[in-house]
Computed example of a mutant assay.
Amino acid sequence: MTTWLPRGLVFAVGMVVLRLVQGSLINANPTNAGSISFTLCGLFAIGALIWGLIDGMADARANEDPDRRRDLAMRWLLAGLVAGVLSGLATFIISLFYKAVYVDGLGPELIVFPAFTCLLIFIPAMFAVSVGRWLVDRKRPPKPRMRMPGSPRDDVFAAARAEDPNEKYATVGRTEMNWRQDAREAVRDEHDVVQKAKWELNRDD
């Protein structure tokens, strides 16, 4: 079973219960409707905080490398959408038989209310995931940066240049050119010496 489905089902049931309790409390005390709704939503968000914290800590323990950790954002986004749609549909069906539940209609219950429920789950859960990962990571000793034996510390391109065959061929070519130049200069000097010796012999004659 996918990891987001059980979370979505649990929070869908929780939201249905919340709305049933909300309707009963508001009918009994209509002057405090705002406080009742705010308190119940806060309790619902606390559930997402706790579960998100558990997920974040478990993921950080299972994967020390942050780049290899799971995409918990998508997990909780799908869970929130499932919880919103299912709870909205279930509440609308219940309202057909139990009039104490506040329902705006099938359209808002399947569009507007799921968006609100998704945010009420997703935002606290992702905040708790970040906190959970941080709580685990801060207890780990810092790992030293791994380097290959004998590798240069400053010049990151030195290894590539050392193994570049073009650089090797260029070095051999420059050496051969220098040797040819030295040979030509040596022959030219020898020729000048011979010509000078011939000139002096001819002058003595």
Rank of each mutant, 00 (worst) to 15 (best):
R174I: 14
I111Q: 05
M126D: 05
E167S: 14
K139F: 11
A158G: 08
Q195G: 09
A159E: 12
R153N: 11
P144F: 04
G84P: 04
L81I: 00
I54R: 12
I94P: 01
A183K: 15
F127I: 11
F97V: 05
R68A: 00
A162T: 05
D155S: 11
G88H: 01
M177I: 13
G173D: 07
P142F: 07
Q181L: 15
A100P: 01
M74Y: 04
G105F: 15
H191A: 08
G173A: 12
W51S: 00
D154E: 12
R188K: 13
W76D: 03
G56P: 01
I54W: 12
A62K: 10
K143S: 07
F127P: 03
W76H: 02
V112R: 09
Y169E: 15
A62M: 09
R145N: 09
G56A: 11
R69G: 02
F92C: 00
E176Y: 14
L78R: 00
I123A: 06
F157P: 02
A159Y: 11
D55V: 10
G56I: 04
F116M: 04
P108V: 08
V187D: 06
P66G: 04
R153H: 14
V82I: 02
P149K: 10
I121D: 00
R180I: 13
P141T: 09
E176P: 04
D55T: 10
G84S: 00
D55N: 12
L135Q: 03
